[in-house]
Design a protein around this nucleic acid. Sequence first.
DNA 1: GGCTGAGATCAGGCTGTGGTGATATCAGTT
DNA 2: AACTGATATCACCACAGCCTGATCTCAGCC
Lengths: 92, 92
Amino acid sequence: MKLLADPLRAHIVRLLAEGPACTCHLVADTGATQSNVSNHLRALRHAGVVAAEPWGRFTYYRLQADVIEAAAEQLGALAARARATVDARREC
Amino acid sequence: MKLLADPLRAHIVRLLAEGPACTCHLVADTGATQSNVSNHLRALRHAGVVAAEPWGRFTYYRLQADVIEAAAEQLGALAARARATVDARREC
DNA sequence: GGCTGAGATCAGGCTGTGGTGATATCAGTT
DNA sequence: AACTGATATCACCACAGCCTGATCTCAGCC
């Protein structure tokens, strides 16, 4: 969840949502350093948000839709819960 | 979005999802300092995630379900987009 | 008016973490 | 095997953001 908080990581995730891409694409599209992108990709990889697929000399990254969807559902449940309890004001 | 990344803020949001509560409730339930909670509430307020409702001497906070739901929908759209483009591998 | 208790605000310290540069690895290619 | 280009890893610095402690405001109450 907190992984999507970083602007560059969010950018990477948005790019990957448009289809699997290799690191060079992400570096070119974000304009960030290769080291930087790679570091963020490692964080996303360890969290299971993206999956790495070596393809010859390149490494393709694929966004794991399930993980994103799970986060979305958690937020949705929170919103629903909030709506259901609008009148449950606790007394001091 | 990145507001929910902080553990304490996430805790506060979860508590508020169970119904509007005043600052003293949040302070008691989270075990955090009053200053700390108040600071986080300000951040959430400025982002429109929560709304403050003065009630006599107290201040009740209410979670804005719309904002949470909007975030959830954005994530959902991202996941859907990722699913739709699983085979759109870009060439290097 | 003076007091008390809830809450907001501010200044400072400290830690976590993102960015950078240099280096290591590893797969093709000659 | 030597070379190149893609990617990963590491060490370091710098800054943002969290936490705390102290102070300020404001509402209700005596």
